[in-house]
Amino acid sequence: MSETVNIASQNPAGSTKMLKAMVGIGVLSALLIVVTFELTQPRVQQLKAEALEKAIFEVLPGAVSSRTFGVNAEGKLIAPDTEESPVSLVYAGYDSADQLVGYAVEASGQGYADKIRILYGYNPKQQQIIGFQVLESKETPGLGDKIEKEQRFLDNFTALDVGLNKEGNIANKVTTVKQGAKVNAWEIDGITGATISSRAVGDIIGSSTEEVIPLLFDNYKMMETPKANPKKNENDDK
């Protein structure tokens, strides 16, 4: 690695050669990289979008198209075409009749091993969570990763109550309870053996819903149909 030694004994012409070689290779590298990037970018974007859309449709059963909205720093929902840069994103899903199915909300929090990133679907009409998917987790395989696989756990999210009270806040915060101890509609039936991971999911949903749901519920009328806002997100371009 160290080129320190014979430099002083080299003639000065060596330096120019070195310079030329380095810069030459640098330029060559840049060319190669840029060309590859330009060539692959469209396909990569498309694949990513597809993956996202797939996830959205998963948590919003019945949805066939989606639009992306942002949430700004003041906690207001903003349309995708505005200049304001969003703090986080919310996806609205529509069925084949262009009726709003619900919103897909991304949330994350500390799990057992590392951060867990999830996506859940919210139906403002029923005021329920209607779908759930883990986007990214490093939970222990066989234990913690049951939150992604165990059907009994996933069943919690077909109709999880996130109804609002009169003040416009979540009436009952979503929490995870011990396996088999679920009594109320707003409780998540936990997994024995994956207690921490299932609780983490509960906590993530709990805190995310407290923040986002009131906002979405207030605004859902405004976006009930995609026609209310003619300009479509690029996600919808198929």
């Binding site: 070195m18 310079l19 380095m22 810069v23 290779i25 640098g26 330029v27 590298s29 840049a30 060319l31 990289i33 840029v34 060309v35 990037f37 330009e38």
Partner: peptide
């Protein structure tokens, strides 16, 4: 972007080589 890349990387390597 080609030019940006060329300039950036070329500059960077030049700087480091010097």
């Amino acid at each position: 972007s080609v030019f940006i890349a060329l300039a950036a990387l070329g500059g960077l390597t030049l700087l480091l080589a010097v």
